[in-house]
Computed example of a mutant assay.
Amino acid sequence: MGDRPATVDDVHEIATAMPHVTRVEGPKAGNPIYQVGGKSFVFFRTPRPDALDPDTGERYPDVIVIWVESEDDKLALTQDPDSPFFTTDHFDGHPSVLVRASRLGEVGVTELRELIQDAWLSRASKRRAQQWLAERGG
């Protein structure tokens, strides 16, 4: 079966499927935040002044933040200007990438699943991460 373009529903489904995940609502707009052990690994961001449409100057209403393991991982995802993944000055030094929900279709479900699983692994306790990897034969 071929890989299909990712959707926002896939983000929710993949994040929820990880073990020990809690979904909380953001304090301002009720935006979904996925956490493991009280640590966020994927969240839907409220519109902020650091992520603007270059043509209209409007704040992007659909930014999703996904944690990454390292600065190298972040760079690998954001250095291609055609990539749907990006970062802003606000996230300099933060181990995460941003992607607009409206551009998720440029990413396959397989890649999105790997990104979210890696995000979970980067935030889960060592014990939980090792247990999950062992269950998967990794």
Rank of each mutant, 00 (worst) to 15 (best):
A101I: 12
F41A: 02
R45L: 04
I33N: 03
G93T: 08
E69K: 15
F43I: 03
D89E: 14
L52M: 08
D53V: 08
G57L: 07
G38M: 08
L77V: 14
R48F: 02
S96R: 01
V63H: 09
V36L: 09
H94S: 05
T46C: 04
P47Y: 03
S83W: 01
H94C: 08
G37E: 15
V68G: 10
Q35K: 15
A101K: 14
Y60V: 02
P54I: 14
T78V: 15
E58I: 07
P49V: 11
D89F: 06
L98N: 04
V68Y: 02
V36G: 05
F44I: 07
L98W: 01
G57W: 00
D53Q: 11
V36K: 04
R59N: 11
I66K: 10
G37F: 13
R59Y: 06
V63S: 07
K74L: 01
D92M: 00
D80W: 12
W67I: 03
T87S: 12
S102Q: 14
R59E: 15
D62H: 07
D55E: 13
P84S: 09
K39G: 02
D89L: 05
D92L: 01
P54H: 13
Q79V: 02
G57E: 05
F44W: 01
D50L: 12
D82F: 12
R100L: 06
P81F: 11
K28Y: 12
T56F: 12
A101H: 10
T56L: 14
S70M: 05
V97M: 06
V68L: 04
G30V: 01
T78K: 09
V99Q: 12
P61C: 07
S70N: 02
D50T: 15
R48G: 00
P81E: 13
T46H: 04
G37T: 15
T46S: 11
G93K: 08
D89Q: 13
P95T: 00
P47S: 03
K74S: 00
F86Q: 13
V65M: 12
W67E: 03
Y60P: 00
L52A: 06
P95N: 09
Y60R: 09
G93D: 05
D72H: 14
I66T: 10
T87Q: 06
V65K: 10
Q79F: 00
D62Y: 06
D53F: 04
R100E: 14
D80A: 07
F91W: 14
P84V: 03
G30W: 00
N31I: 02
A51L: 09
P54V: 12
S40T: 14
F43M: 08
D50R: 05
F86N: 14
D82T: 15
T78Q: 07
T56I: 13
D80G: 05
K74C: 01
D50G: 14
K28D: 09
T88N: 07
